[in-house]
Design a protein around this nucleic acid. Structure first.
Length: 361
DNA sequence: AACGCGGGGCG
DNA sequence: CGCCCAGCGTT
């Protein structure tokens, strides 16, 4: 690929776009060009596979079909629709941004780079994706797929985890992008990365832009792109309490509004150390944080849960209530096994729920 | 420029 | 078990 040769650039564009038009997958967010739906899909697709997103997208759009519907919705209902998808700040930022569009833009998604980039959760990739796909504006949309494809096309050994590399690739895309059909061009690059130019074993034999690819020419496609290794997730040992009151209700607690799993619900739990008995740490915790006098019973379950940056080792104990269990704190509530279904839980605590309430839900 | 932030699927 | 996925906000 010669970036300074117009004929070569045009051939690349045409090869990519005609391949995309003949081979693109039939995806729910490709049914129309509603900027709101494109936006929702792009947020869901951040760090998340297409196949994972599809059912969430369909359910989410059915529940919140328009900017106004999402703007007026309850945050808990939005998190419930996001439950299990991960990176929950995406959902909270999306609703905050949609509320901004609702009030400041009359419900109409803005179509300028400057305005759309101000919206919470809309970074350089997502702004370019919405502008090109929904509004046919030739802006780069550089995600992991595009970085992999371009790194191979130009045989670059730059580390794609660096911000500078992404910016360089954005400049290359500004040269390459079709001004006639920026939507098909950007989606074509991503689709190529997803279907042909895959991470470990790219299908170079059937690649529509093979003749433009320097990595293929040099047979280094499997060595590219270069990406720095991530640090291992740190382990945390947790103790968790499954407590029922005499009415058969279970105690659950809403997490803080910032940080990990913000505003999601969980069974009361704490990080434990190796210095004191787990039972002692758990009773102290339940007394201090929930004003509950308890006796710790048997360990009834165990959950290992891996996040991108940490690992939870959770031991779940059945807890007997000594005090009455009236009001605990502002962010906790006693719920029946039918009521609990309305609360958004992270997958780690869904596992606990499914085990402890087996047969009841 | 680094790090925190989920969850699942695949080799 | 490690790697990767249509990244962004915070520090």
């Amino acid at each position: 690929m010669q970036l300074d040769n117009m004929a070569s650039v045009k051939e690349f564009r045409n090869d990519l776009i005609s391949w995309f038009k003949g081979n693109q997958r039939d995806l729910p967010w490709r049914q129309d060009k509603d900027p709101y739906k494109i936006w929702v899909s792009e947020i869901m697709l951040q760090q998340t596979r297409v196949e994972t997103v599809i059912p969430y997208f369909n359910g989410f759009i059915k529940k919140f079909p328009t900017v106004d519907a999402l703007a007026l919705a309850d945050e808990g209902d939005v998190l419930k629709a996001w439950e299990g998808l991960g990176y929950y700040s995406r959902a909270r930022n999306l609703q905050a941004a949609v509320r901004e569009v609702h009030t400041s833009y009359g419900g109409v998604v803005p179509n300028s780079k400057a305005e759309i980039s101000k919206l919470k959760g809309v970074g350089p990739y997502t702004s370019g994706a919405i502008l090109s796909i929904a509004f046919d504006i030739p802006e780069p949309a550089v995600d992991g797929n595009v970085m992999r494809v371009i790194s191979r096309i130009i045989a670059s050994y730059d580390d794609i985890s660096k911000q500078k590399t992404r910016k360089n690739i954005e400049e290359i895309i500004k040269i390459l992008i079709s001004k006639d059909d920026p939507s098909a061009f950007n989606q074509g690059l991503m689709e190529l990365g997803a279907l042909i130019c895959t991470p470990t074993t790219p299908s170079c034999a059937i690649c529509p832009v093979q003749k433009h690819c320097k990595a293929y020419e040099e047979n280094v496609q499997t060595q590219l792109p270069i990406k720095a290794k991530k640090t291992k997730p740190k382990e945390k040992k947790m103790a968790c309490a499954f407590i029922k009151n005499k009415d058969g209700q279970v105690l659950i607690h809403q997490r803080l509004s910032v940080g990990l799993l913000a505003n999601l619900w969980e069974f009361p739990n704490l990080e434990i150390n190796d210095e004191k008995p787990i039972e002692k740490q758990l009773t102290d915790f339940l007394l201090t944080e929930f004003s509950l006098h308890t006796i710790i019973g048997e360990q009834i379950f165990h959950v290992d849960h891996v996040f991108s940056h940490l690992k939870w080792d959770i031991k779940i104990f059945e807890v007997e209530l000594l005090s009455s269990g009236e009001k605990q704190n502002e962010r906790s509530v006693w719920v029946s096994s039918s009521e609990i279904k309305a609360y958004p839980f992270p997958v780690s605590h869904q596992k606990i729920m499914n085990h402890c309430l087996k047969g009841e839900i």
